[in-house]
């Protein structure tokens, strides 16, 4: 069964078109990722689904029913920002939302236990990881069938990120549908059954991570790490992304391209730490489809 169906969804803010005719199907029980850079329209789409943000045209169905206050109860939403009131304890925050959604008080205890939350700690004293957990607990208060997560791992350190991913995997095992928006391709690859790549208010590709990677064709990626200088020539000649101390160059024939890449870097004065040939990632697919990186 389709958990979410979106047809021809358009939303604009003045002259800025945030969503330009989105079509999307999310199946029940799958983890579906919206992958795209900031400003691609992911949060707008999510807020329409979860917060009732108005839209210009299009149709949205949740488990076959048109989106309304009634269907909102089927969707639990954990936004990017913390939903917690700083001066309230974890328990008090959950109690507040339980009152708002008319959820029995014992559900608060269940969620505190499940997410191992420090019940008596004030929200302002929580680490980033616990704040995200509290957001998830709020989203799950009324046991929704769909969980919508906006950039769930933004701002988290690696261990907290891993813990969060484990929780999301647990939700899938429980049969919940998870729709997550992210601009981290590794998050989409690690969690999603299917991924929709979004750019400038449009869905430009949908499929499993493997299907999407096939869009890159026979390409492979030269992954270089180190203190890199003289990358301008490579960025001009190849489809490549440079981020911090990493350069990823998409090429059709790695054996031919590799010497050219190395030569350019050495001439530029780079100190190369490692070079490897990899299969293309979702980010490389995004690069191929849009001509730019995810961040």
């Amino acid at each position: 069964m389709r958990a979410i169906e979106v047809r021809g969804l358009r939303k604009s803010y003045g002259n800025f078109i945030a969503l330009n005719g989105i079509n999307l199907d999310v199946d029940e029980g799958e983890v579906f990722a919206l992958l795209g850079p900031n400003g691609a329209g992911k949060t707008t789409l999510i807020r329409i689904l979860a917060e009732g943000l108005s839209y210009d045209s299009g149709e949205i169905r949740v488990f076959g029913e048109s989106l309304s206050k009634k269907t909102a109860r089927l969707i639990g939403y954990a936004p990017q920002e913390s939903l917690a009131y700083d001066d309230l304890t974890v328990r008090e925050n959950l109690e507040f939302y339980a009152d708002l959604y008319d959820v029995p008080g014992k559900r608060v205890d269940e969620l505190i236990e499940r997410f191992k939350l420090p019940a008596k700690k004030k929200a302002k004293e929580l680490s980033g990881g616990f704040k995200k957990r509290l957001n998830l607990a709020v989203a799950l208060l009324y046991d929704p069938r769909v969980l919508v997560l906006d950039e769930p791992s933004t701002g988290l350190d690696v261990p907290s990120k891993r813990e969060l991913w484990e929780l999301i995997k647990e939700f899938r095992e429980e049969g919940k549908t998870v729709l997550l928006a992210t601009h981290y391709m590794e998050e989409a690859e690690a969690l999603a059954d299917r991924v929709a790549i979004m750019n400038e208010g449009q869905v430009i590709a949908v499929g499993t991570p493997e299907e999407l990677k096939r869009l890159a064709g026979n390409e492979s990626v030269i992954h270089v790490e180190g203190i890199l200088r003289g990358t301008e020539a490579i960025l001009r000649e190849f489809r490549a992304i440079e981020r911090e101390n990493v350069l990823r160059v998409s090429v059709e024939d790695a054996r031919k391209a590799l010497p050219k890449v190395v030569e350019a870097l050495v001439e530029g004065g780079s100190e190369i730490r490692s070079i490897r040939i990899e299969e293309p990632s979702l980010e490389d697919v995004f690069l191929k489809l849009t001509g730019r990186g995810l961040e």
Binding site: Y85, D87, L88, E92, E95, F96, Y97, A98, D99, L100, D102
Partner: peptide, 17 residues
């Protein structure tokens, strides 16, 4: 219950501010 929730939450926040 929603009204009660808002009242209790606000009172707690005010007391701690």
């Amino acid at each position: 219950r929603a009204v009660k929730g808002i009242v209790v939450k606000d009172l707690r926040e005010t007391r701690r501010d």
